[in-house]
Design a protein around this nucleic acid. Structure first.
Length: 336
DNA sequence: AACGTTAACAACCGCCTTGCG
DNA sequence: CCGCAAGGCGGTTGTTAACGT
């Protein structure tokens, strides 16, 4: 394709931004919005390419960015989401209020990944090395196949979520355009996040979004329910998880609910991807140190007896990982 | 104090996707 | 439907501060 590179013009500055450049960019966007990024630098009096301006804005200057140390809850969320989504940083960032994908990616590469490696956990598969060896011997091929299936399902589900976010964004934009009298900076940034969903009120405290494929329901306690509209879904017909909340106290509860709904759903293959991370082998799953092992194995015995034992199982799995993570950082706390 | 190494993070690069004419 | 421009995303590099020898 005949794309013209955006940054190959002579005279365009590269490298670190100066405070003056930041000020110019901020002032321009605050007054006019970013509009077309390509034309912005000239209008704002910057010797930068539009792409550079966009990155500087989205990763650094945006007023709704939280900077500084990641909390334990944030670390836990990143690890969980990475286990589900892999290196889909923007999708992960969607669930971490006020953090940018770039920041999360950097934090993962410089902190979390190394920590997992140190603990003997493969940062790609999130499996303990022993577990990886087991599955490579073929003992758990069927489990691996199911795992793959669940990964596909989770992936599809999250893509649906992203699509809905885009749709709501469009609605949001339309709403904005219909109400031009609103503040000029209203829609400067449109990362999909809980705050960007359009939420028509249902009158009973719950709010709903609809798309051709799914219905999304918001309830007062911030839960999100995606209900595929089709009748013949072989996938779960109800999957609920929580959007990360902007308040730190909610994050923990949200994570709890999110994990519970993934791990303890209602039928069929609904046990969820994360449960199979654990069920991949029936033997050595003792990721934790010391007394946690007994609970973990005990949970495994009950796996076929009730769906909620899956939850217990995964609770132990995640606690194992997260306790290890915590213990290698600073304070340790049980997540569930 | 000088130098080398490592860690952290900002920024860039190139590919992919999306929207629009 | 097609082609292009623009934006988005993930991988990678560059820079700098902190630390160790």
């Amino acid at each position: 394709m005949g794309r013209s590179p955006c940054c190959d013009k002579a005279g365009l500055k590269k490298g670190p931004w100066t405070p003056e450049e930041d000020q110019k960019l901020l002032a321009y966007i605050e007054e006019h919005g970013h509009g077309s990024w390509r034309s912005l630098p000239e209008k704002a009096g910057l010797q930068r390419c539009g792409k550079s301006c966009r990155l500087r804005w989205t990763n650094y200057l945006r007023p709704d960015i939280k900077r500084g140390k990641f909390t334990v809850q944030e670390e836990q969320t990143i690890i969980q989401l990475h286990a589900l989504l892999g290196n889909r940083w923007s999708a992960i960032a969607t669930h971490l209020a006020k953090r940018t994908d770039n920041e999360i990616k950097n934090y993962w590469n410089t902190h979390l990944k190394k920590r997992l490696v140190k603990m003997g956990i493969d940062p790609v598969t999130h499996k303990h090395k022993n577990e990886t060896l087991m599955s490579s011997t073929g003992q758990s091929k069927s489990a691996a196949a199911t795992l793959s299936h669940m990964a596909q399902w989770e992936s599809a589900r999250l893509e649906a979520e992203a699509r809905l976010a885009r749709e709501s964004k469009l609605l949001h934009l339309q709403h904005y355009q219909n109400n031009k009298a609103a503040a000029p900076n209203h829609c400067l940034s449109h990362k999909a996040s809980s705050t960007n969903w359009t939420k028509p009120n249902l009158g009973n405290g719950d709010q709903q979004l609809e798309s051709p494929t799914s219905t999304v329901t918001f309830s007062e306690n911030h839960h999100l329910m995606i209900m595929p509209s089709g009748e013949n879904n072989s996938v779960p017909n109800v999957t609920e998880f929580a959007l990360s909340s902007s308040t730190s106290s909610d994050v923990k509860d949200s994570d709890h609910d999110w994990m519970r709904q993934i791990n303890c759903p209602t039928e069929g293959v609904q046990e969820g991807f994360t449960s199979l991370l654990l069920l991949g082998d029936s033997g050595d799953r003792s990721l934790s140190t010391g007394q946690k092992d007994e609970e973990t194995v005990a949970g495994a015995v009950e796996v076929n007896e009730s769906d909620c034992s899956y939850y217990e199982d995964n609770k132990n799995y995640w606690n194992s990982i997260l306790n290890l993570v915590d213990s290698t950082s600073s304070d340790s706390s049980t997540m569930f």
